[in-house]
Every structure is written in C-alpha cells, then in structure tokens.
Design a protein around this nucleic acid. Sequence first.
DNA 1: GATTACATGTGTGTTTTACATGTAGGTGGG
DNA 2: CCCACCTACATGTAAAACACACATGTAATC
Lengths: 116, 116
Amino acid sequence: MVHPGHWGVRARVERFSEPALLLLLRERPAHGYELLEALPALTGESRVDMGNLYRVLRALEEDGLVTSRWEAGEPGPAKRIYELTTEGKRLLDEWAAALRRSRDRIDTFLERHEGR
Amino acid sequence: MVHPGHWGVRARVERFSEPALLLLLRERPAHGYELLEALPALTGESRVDMGNLYRVLRALEEDGLVTSRWEAGEPGPAKRIYELTTEGKRLLDEWAAALRRSRDRIDTFLERHEGR
DNA sequence: GATTACATGTGTGTTTTACATGTAGGTGGG
DNA sequence: CCCACCTACATGTAAAACACACATGTAATC
C-alpha cells in the first residue's frame, strides 16, 4: 500500500487469524466453515479469506498442532472437524505471550503520542 | 513462515515502522540515519531495514506527508532532513486511532485466552 | 593513501495476504 | 428431474510487505 496516495491505515497484527483460530479450537473442536464465521468477532475484520484459512489449517495439521477427522452422516456436505493438540495449545500460549509484548509496544507508542 | 515446522510467532503490527517514523518526526525533524538508530526503541525490533526506511520516506514525501531539505555545511556527508507536514500529522493521528483499536482487539483476545 | 564510519540509496527474492476461481454434495422449487 | 442455490473444502495467482545483500560518496583517522 506504500505509494498510491492512499495511505489507508489498519494496524493489523500479522497472521492474527492464526492465534484466533487456535483459541476457537481450544474452546471446542470445529470445522472450517464454522471457524470462518466465528473468526470476525475475534479479528475485527468483516470477513476472513477462506483460501488462506484452509491453507493454515492444513499446515497446522502437517506439523501436528491440530488433528482432523471427517464427519459424515449429517445433512449437508461432509465436514472436516479440527481439534487442537497439546502442541497446538503450547503454540497458542506462545502467541498469547507475543501478543502481550505487542500490546505493550503499542501502549508505549500511544503514551508517547499523547505527549508524555 | 507457514509450513516448515517452524511456526515462529512475533505478532508484529503491519508497517509499524511507518507510524513510529511519523512520531519521531513530530518530535523533531531528523535525517534517515538518525531515524534508523531511534526506531528500534519504538518498534522493539533489534534493527530496521535501511532500504525499506528510505523507500517509505520517499513515498511519504511523494504524497506530501513529509518534506525534506539537504543540510550541508556541517561535518560529515550531507544529510537529508525530513520534517512532518500538517497532512503527515493527520496521518499520524489516524495511525494512533488504528493502533488503539488494534490494542483493544488484542486485549479482548488475551482476556478470552485467560478464560473469562 | 587505506581503512573505518557516516549517510543515502538500489536490486532482488521471500513471505504473507488478498482476490478469483474450481469441485462437489445436499436442498428446495418449478 | 433438473436447475439454482447453499454449504464446505480447496487451489491458483498476483499484489503487498518485508528482509537481505549490495552500491555510492564523503569525511575523519590511522
């Protein structure tokens, strides 16, 4: 976004949907589409990109941070249910720690901005 | 960073060096190298990339958010001194507002993470 | 006069994010 | 029954942001 005379500012945290995802999954197992609908409440974005969401979920699974199983039978297309592993919970805690540091940095900035 | 079994988390705010830059310039005009040394205290990063810093400065200037003048005479190489414009100050305030929202989102996340 | 430090840049590849599109089963209407 | 639409999962690709490496010139200092 640097240069088109536009300069829209959002102050997004990089890959914030990732810890949000992990937090939702710690609360209870869920399938992708469900997470897609629950995420905006946490991220503040109006919507989250599906493509990236599923990619992150698969990558998380590859590294053993979540597990998944196919849930058939119910009406509608088969759902892939994701569940957080112990490793995944550890990652979530790392994210929380990093986010705490990030928040403190923002606070420092804001205090300095108000002029103190 | 998604996929190589690595999952390093930093929770950086996107383009955070930009508002940091503007804040420093509001405090007083400065040249690039000076900003480079002052930035880590605000951003929390060990160092800031020069290339990107100068690119951001030029882009800001292109859009009238900062102005610059060459300062010769003094010992050492000529310095390009950057100064914040009124437009630039307005942008800084927008950033501050966005950062406040971002901090509140993080707080919401953290509270939900502690389980409340 | 070679080396080091200051100061300003450019070039290029990687990572992250956004946008567009594709597949496929189930549901309800005409 | 077949067409439109919804749910659910997935890939392709391009733009944005970022990091790493390199290039240039001036001046102090050894």
